[in-house]
Design a protein around this nucleic acid. Structure first.
Length: 822
RNA sequence: GCCGGAGUGGCGGAAUGGUAGACGCAGGGGACUCAAAAUCCCCCGGCCCUCUGAGGCCGUGAGGGUUCGAUUCCCUCCUCCGGCACCA
């Protein structure tokens, strides 16, 4: 068959699947329910999708088709994460409006999906940059405002000078902008936040129920949430008539406190230094620290620095006077932004106090077994120099001190999280307008629900200068105050695009709904998502936000489930040798991407799909090799020629086997069992391997002139049906030529008989002292005595038994006999 | 540093307590062909042997352990990859 024939057949089936709406599911029908298979929605980028991207879609499609063949009612939708910075930057560079380029990209990607033969229920398509979608972002925002879950507050935030916007904590990990990889700087700004921290405990404990999520992702989320158990303690500042709160995980070391450290951003800093003789010098130092970039400031290697405020605090237990310092390493928005320094038992405090010659007091005696050369003991031990607490273990001490603080009214047990509130304001055009109006008289006022959507104005000056183009669209900015009717200004910040992806899977279920974001009853029947598939890069960001949204929606009474994704699968990335000589993630910018379109035009989508699935375990990284595809190509060619030979031979394609139990039937049943199990455990590469093996067996069977015609036809039909998830075009075509009148997509998966799926004769391994000494072909059901008799009569085994005393015999039915001799 | 994951032929990998290397790539040999391509068949971890065999020994990062039997379970170590990292 020529390449053009192959492509023509692929086109024929693609057209047929799409015209017959093969993937359509009526989710809104009163009793509809089923399996929800979801793949992370793509960002419609201007670059065409390459091989590295395709893996997710191919394996999702294989599952989708497999489950359809097995008769499940399965929903697999697709949509577009259409807001985002690249489109806006493109507008600045090329003068093409983001909407225009985005819609063009969507059309191009959709065509690619069509050419790959991947099936989606396009009637559910969601495009997040459309007002019909983002109006519900605005609606959720208003609901969250009502509930106090959306708040405007001043906080230290990450500002990316290159993207000219603030970023959420999750999007500025390690002080690097997640998008452009530039360094971010700290700024103190008033911004909109979603109070994800209110759900910290629920987000953490919910992880335990996600037993079908990769352990890795759960651990990453757990660490990100960062729950710490300890105590809050109050230190009075008698000279100011105020007090300073600290959080510590080690209340047992409280008697070793020799200083308090506050963050340069701490609100009390101005008061602490107002009477300091070198106030100007300290202020200069504070602002220098505050303006430094995060990566520099948070690096562990950064030199610890501080300034003594001159203010003294009173130790709540000893009454001692201890100095209050401003320290550069104290993080403002963690805990209380202040901490108690215990240099004897904390490495950081030790480094700081040594540098500034602050006293070091040991209050935890290390266990006798511990290394005595370590200057700063941060482990557990026994309390000493701690008054009446002496002798307590660290563990008991933590509780005792915290309780003492509680009863004394100067603190108590406390749990703190590393997680920060989700900063959603973005000073960019291409996003969901935040539905708020600023009025001189009324402060900020929410846009009334009835005025939604606040539509993003089409015309905006994309100059790349002077920040957000939205601020320059007067017709958008100027608006009457919804409360007093006076002149007011609209909020020009837009929402983080992760808001869009936090609930799109709910909109898929009911995309036409114009009265509500989605129907609650539909959501009740289709949530949670049965299987979610996507890249590990979203382990924290998207998956955490979506889990947060689900909780909020549950509290709003819109959904019933707290966890939106029952099972998660992260496919491994595809790598390839770069021009630099390294094996790297496939990407256009690294110059190692393999374009899909030409490859498909040359070899057909089925071949590319088969090879990509065959590369290796789907969850592991896979190295692409240009030569390897030959194997997939040969395999499909063999299937074609085997089928052609059969069809030319004039045997009835619908024939059934005359006898149920034949060696060929056993191989067939076994293959069905193996391939079914492989798909069930996402082992696509072994599924293909079993199919390759079976294709050879079928070829041999068809070449056998005396074989049962019914067996031949059935084996070939089985091969075709099993091949469908991997190479659907070829499978559908051969199925049709074999007389199939209905698509393989509906309920065509072959059943297997467990009794026939096992070989009836097997090769028994005979071991002597655990070493293989012979192989005996015997009935699978052979009893121990039969195998033993055969083994003893078997010369190579007998040789090892001669003159030895038999100590023990281990028999594994159907597998092996091990004779232990002395 | 802490937390995950992984180390198996020339290469991708299979086998999760029971015959290590399924399936495929690359390589070698053969058939077909005037020839080539394609296709088909065979071989393909290393070493050893005057019993060339239904032969022996070694072999799944290294070392130890449990077991009749370990790629698989346990301990120690090495290497690589990923994540987090001044969060008190």
């Amino acid at each position: 068959m020529s390449p053009s024939d192959i492509l023509a057949i692929e086109k024929k089936w693609q057209d047929r699947w799409s015209s017959q709406k093969a993937a359509f599911v009526d989710t809104t029908a009163p009793d509809s329910r089923g399996t929800y298979l979801l793949v992370m929605l793509p960002y419609p980028s201007g670059d065409r999708l390459h091989v590295g991207h395709a893996r997710t879609y191919f394996l999702t499609d294989a599952l989708h088709r497999f489950y359809r063949q097995r008769g499940r009612n399965i929903l697999c939708p697709m949509g577009w994460d259409a807001f985002g910075l690249p489109a806006e930057n493109y507008a600045i560079e090329r003068g093409i409006h983001p909407r225009e380029s985005t819609l063009a990209n969507i059309a191009a990607m959709k065509e690619q999906f069509q050419n790959w033969g991947v099936l989606y229920d396009w009637s559910k398509e969601v495009t997040t940059c459309e007002p019909e979608y983002y109006r519900w972002n605005q609606w959720f925002f208003l609901k969250m405002l009502e509930k106090g879950l959306a708040v405007r507050k001043k906080a230290p935030v990450n500002w990316c000078p290159s993207c000219e916007t603030v970023l959420a904590n999750e999007q500025a990990e390690g002080g690097i902008c997640e998008r452009c990889k530039n360094r971010v700087v700290q700024k103190e700004l008033e911004q909109w936040f979603l109070t994800i921290t209110k759900y910290a405990d629920s987000l953490l404990s919910g992880l335990d129920s996600l037993d079908k999520w990769p352990e890795k992702v759960r651990v990453m989320q757990k660490n990100w949430i960062g729950r710490s158990v300890g105590a809050d303690l109050k230190f009075d500042l008698p000279s100011l008539g105020e007090s300073l709160w600290v959080f510590t995980t080690r209340p047992d070391t409280v008697f070793g406190v020799t200083a308090l450290f506050v963050a340069p951003e701490h609100p009390m800093v101005p008061r602490l230094i107002e009477n300091h003789p070198d106030r100007a010098g300290i202020e200069a130092w504070v602002s220098k620290v505050r303006n430094s970039d995060r990566i520099e400031r948070e690096a562990e290697t950064t030199e610890k620095e501080g300034r003594d405020t001159g203010i003294r605090a009173r130790h709540p237990f000893t009454g001692a006077e201890i100095p209050v310092w401003i320290a550069n390493f104290v993080i403002a928005d963690y805990g209380t932004g202040a901490l108690m320094a215990v240099p004897a038992h904390d490495d950081r405090d030790f480094a700081f106090c040594t540098k500034y010659s602050l006293p070091i007091v040991e209050v935890i005696r290390r266990p006798a077994s511990a290394d005595s050369s370590i200057a700063c003991w941060t482990g557990e031990g026994t309390m000493v120099n701690s008054g009446r607490f002496d002798g307590l273990t660290s563990e008991a001490g933590r509780e005792a001190i915290a309780n003492e603080a509680a009863s004394g009214g100067f603190g108590g047990p406390q749990v703190r999280y590393r997680l920060r509130d989700w900063l959603i304001s973005r000073q960019r055009y291409w996003g969901t307008p935040i539905p708020v109006v600023y009025c001189d008289a009324c402060s900020w006022v929410p846009v009334p629900e009835s005025h939604l959507p606040v539509v993003l104005p089409k015309d905006a000056p994309f100059t790349g200068k002077g920040g957000n183009p939205l601020t320059k669209v007067e017709s958008f900015v100027k608006t009457p105050c919804p409360k007093c009717g006076g002149p007011a200004r609209r909020e020009t910040d837009t929402m983080d695009t992760f808001v869009d992806s936090s609930w799109y899977f709910l909109r898929y279920l009911d995309p036409e709904n114009s009265a509500r974001p989605f129907d609650g009853d539909v959501a009740r029947r289709w949530m949670p998502v049965t299987q979610y598939i996507g890249g590990i890069e979203h382990a924290i960001l998207h998956l955490l936000y979506a889990r947060f949204f689900s909780r909020v929606l549950k509290d709003l009474g819109l959904v019933e489930v707290e966890e939106p994704f029952a099972a998660l699968f992260n496919q491994g990335m595809i790598t390839r040798m770069s021009p630099s000589g390294r094996i790297e993630k496939m990407s256009k910018s690294r110059g190692n991407a393999v374009s899909l379109d030409p490859l498909i035009a040359e070899k057909g989508a089925d071949t590319v799909r088969t090879y990509v699935l065959f590369l290796g375990p789907a969850e592991a990284e896979a190295v692409w090799s240009d030569e390897g595809i030959a194997g997939a190509e040969r395999f499909l060619t063999r299937v074609r020629s085997v089928a052609a030979r059969f069809l030319d031979g004039g045997t009835d394609p619908a024939a059934r086997p005359a006898v149920a139990d034949t060696p060929a039937a056993r191989r067939r049943h076994k293959t069905v069992r193996l391939v079914t199990a492989s798909f069930e455990r996402f082992s696509f590469h072994t599924a293909v391997a079993h199919l390759m093996e079976f294709a050879r067996e079928v070829a041999d069977l068809l070449a056998d002139p005396v074989a049962d015609p019914g067996e031949k036809a059935t084996s070939l039909r089985t091969l075709i049906a099993l091949l469908h998830p991997v190479a659907p075009h070829l499978a559908e075509e051969l199925h049709e030529r074999m007389g199939g009148t209905q698509s393989l997509l509906s309920g065509s998966w072959p059943e297997f008989d467990p009794a026939l799926a096992e070989e009836d004769t097997v090769v028994f391994a005979v071991q002597v002292n655990g070493k293989l000494r012979g192989q005996l072909t015997l009935p699978k059901a052979a009893a121990e005595s039969e195998v033993l008799a055969a083994a003893e009569a078997h010369e190579p085994v007998a040789r090892w038994l001669a003159g030895k005393e038999r100590v023990k015999t281990i028999f594994v039915p159907g597998r092996l006999l091990n004779l232990v001799v002395r």
